[in-house]
Structures are given as structure tokens and as C-alpha cells.
Design a protein around this nucleic acid. Structure first.
Lengths: 204, 204
DNA sequence: AGGGTAACAGACTGAAAAGTCTGTTTACCC
DNA sequence: GGGTAAACAGACTTTTCAGTCTGTTACCCT
């Protein structure tokens, strides 16, 4: 039973630093040796645990990447009251952590989507699935917001969800250039403006 | 004199298909041979005209990429009256051409920004410069819109510009997944909504 | 305790890819 | 029309990298 644990621990370790390095350097631009160097591990160890670079990356996407996106962008909103405010707070805190990265490399998920598009449909599907979960949860939250009287009943929840996702992906892409504090401020400001149209107006 | 023309023509040819292939496969994932295969040209020819892959790519960015972004996203808005409507029309037609790509690979500029971030500060600067030109032109257009009575004087033009750029980058990233017609429709719809807050309200 | 297997080390292979170099063709000039 | 340099061809070099394979260590079970 000890061995099982060891195995899991090592795989976790390889996956965790793998995600970091892939995030920083991109998938095609990082070699397995790059990751192993960081881990002081050998090729033998790696290929004992994983079949190929591709299968390895997919396992990272399904385990770590999905959970990362879920915990930072989906869970804080899921099932909460007052979705609009929750979304603002959630996005703002996500941007805050990004802002405090010494070097920011953008939004992990959209980076990989950009990198794999047209090259690996298999991996693309796994990545798109994460986006879909995000979208569905946003739509659900907005619909619930309508029932609870926080969101105007006339808004198109799906359109708002895609608009939110778009703008988030975009601002994260822009933030890599360094001046991220100002960008975050401007973005959240405009997001609040946008939500003024969407929120439920109490009949006067 | 004929030779000068030939030289220019060949360089143009190499650059043009280079941009296409880089756009489709990414910079690091395409070899010079890939491009030369497409052109039925030899390595000797290529390295006669260009010093290195990097210098070659920079020349593409400065010549072709800048002009491409300028002509599709900046010029149609520059100096026009009624900037908000012009922006909607401009974004919509840009998304339309993207929609009709058999296989879409996203927004060229943001793809490269994602790819080069943290890897090549030199190239990053050239790419960021294009973004800056875009941003400045949007801000100018919005300011002019204020003077001309199309845009509410209280809006923060710079914040709106970054919000616009963000959302555009994001929607183009999302559109790669295929269902781009619906995405375009939703996006433009929400963009129009957003602009309702920004436009100048005639005092009743 | 010792056999057996899981976990790992690291040299090796083959393919790809950037850049070089030498040779060949093409176009221009007198 | 022959000399000259630009324009191009393509074999070659060197490096990098995914994946293989054989050998070694650590742990577990009886």
C-alpha cells in the first residue's frame, strides 16, 4: 500500500511542475528534459509513469488544469446569491493573483487553446470541455440570478456568459505586457458598468 | 532595376506564406522547411534573403502583420464620425471574415503575443507596439466621439478601449472551437448593449 | 533473509530542424 | 557572347528532443 502512495506522489510531482513549465514556456517549446531537470528526475522515471508526452499533458489537463480553473473561476460563483457581484469579486481576485505574478504568462487555459488549435483535436476537446463547464455554470448562475431578483429577466444569459468569458480571456492576454495593475482596474470598472445594464432594476 | 524588383517580389512571397504558416501552426512549431516546401524554394534562397528565422519573423510582423491589423481594425474607425457604430460594424465584419474561415486559428496578433510571452522580449515589443497603436486609435476615436456628441462625456475612454480590445481578443480565441456564427452573434449583441451605456444621451 | 517486483538512472537511437557552405543557374552589362 | 554578380539549389553539420532499453536501487512479502 505504501508503494501505491509513492507512485501517486511522484506522478503528482511530475504533473505539478509540468503544468508550471508548460504554462511558462508552452507545450511545444518545453522538452521533457526541461521538466525532469527541474525535478532532478530521470527519463526512466518519467516514462515509467507516463506513456508519452501527449498522454502526460492530457493527464495534467484533466487533473490539475481543470481543478485550477474550477476552483478559481467557477466554484466561487456556483450556487451563490447575487451572481453579478460574485462574478466581479471572483474575476477581480483572479486578476489580482495574476497581477502579483512576477512574470505573468496569461490565462493558462486560453494559452493552451491557442497553442493546440489546429494541431491536436484530441487535446483541444479536453480544453474546450473546461470552457464549456465554465460557460454552463455562468449561465446557470445568471438564470438563478433572475429567479432571485438580482438579474434582469430580459437579458440573454448565454450571450452574457460568452461576453464575460471573452473579456476575461482577453484581459488576461493583455496583462502579460506588464502594466497589469492599471489594466485590472480599468477592466473591473468597465465590467461594473456593463453589469448595470444587466442587473434587475427595482420598479420605481 | 529588374533585379531589385525580383528580390522584393521573392521576399514578399516568402513573407506572405510565412505569415500564413506561422499563423496556422505557430512560430515554434513550424520549421523553415515547412514554409519552403509550400513555396517550392530552397534553403539557399531563404538564407540568401534573410539572416535568421527570428529576423525573418520580425520583418513579417513589421510589414504584413501590422498592415493587416491596421487595415481591418484601425483604419475603418480612424477619423470617422459616430465611433461607436463604426466600431460595431468594424468588429462585426472582422468576425465575419473569421467566421468564414474553414479552419480558424484565432486572432493572429494575440496568438503570437501568447506564444512569445516570456520567451522573446524583442519580438514581444514589436507585437505590443501594434496593440498600442490600436489602443491609441480607439481612445482618439472615442474622444473625438465625445466632441462630436456621439459619446457620453463621462466615460473613461482608455478603460473602454482596453475593454473593447480584451473582449475582441477573447471572442476571437473562443471562435476557434467552431461554433463561431453563434458566438459572433452573441458577442455583437452584447457589444451593442454595452455601448448603450456609453453613447451620448440626448437630454429629453 | 532473500527473492521478486516496483521505481528509477542514464546511455543510446532516430528524427527533425536551424543554419552553413559549396556549387549551379539566371539575368544583366559592356 | 562572355564575364560577373545576384539568386537559388541542396547536401551537410550540429544541436535538440521524444522515446527506448538495459541496468541498478529500494521496498515488500513470506
Amino acid at each position: 500500500m505504501e508503494k501505491q502512495l509513492k507512485r501517486m506522489a511522484t506522478m503528482q510531482r511530475i504533473q505539478t511542475t509540468g503544468l508550471e513549465v508548460f504554462y511558462q514556456k508552452g507545450y511545444f517549446n518545453t522538452s521533457i528534459d526541461d521538466i525532469l531537470k527541474e525535478l532532478s528526475l530521470s527519463k526512466g522515471a518519467f516514462y515509467y509513469h507516463f506513456q508519452s508526452k501527449e498522454e502526460y499533458f492530457i493527464s495534467i489537463v484533466q487533473n490539475l488544469l481543470f481543478r485550477k480553473v474550477y476552483s478559481t473561476l467557477i466554484e466561487p460563483i456556483e450556487g451563490q446569491e447575487d451572481p453579478l457581484n460574485k462574478i466581479v469579486v471572483c474575476f477581480d481576485s483572479a486578476l489580482e493573483t495574476a497581477e502579483h505574478n512576477f512574470l505573468d504568462y496569461g490565462f493558462v487555459l486560453s494559452n493552451f487553446i491557442t497553442e493546440f488549435n489546429g494541431k491536436n483535436p484530441d487535446i483541444m476537446n479536453y480544453l474546450q470541455d473546461i470552457l464549456k463547464v465554465w460557460e454552463v455554470n455562468l449561465v446557470t448562475a445568471l438564470q438563478k440570478g433572475k429567479s432571485d431578483g438580482y438579474v434582469n429577466r430580459h437579458v440573454d444569459s448565454e450571450a452574457v456568459a460568452t461576453y464575460l468569458i471573452s473579456s476575461y480571456i482577453g484581459i488576461r492576454t493583455l496583462m502579460v505586457e506588464g502594466n497589469s495593475k492599471m489594466l485590472r482596474y480599468k477592466y473591473i470598472q468597465q465590467l461594473r458598468q456593463y453589469f448595470r445594464l444587466i442587473e434587475h432594476k427595482e420598479p420605481a
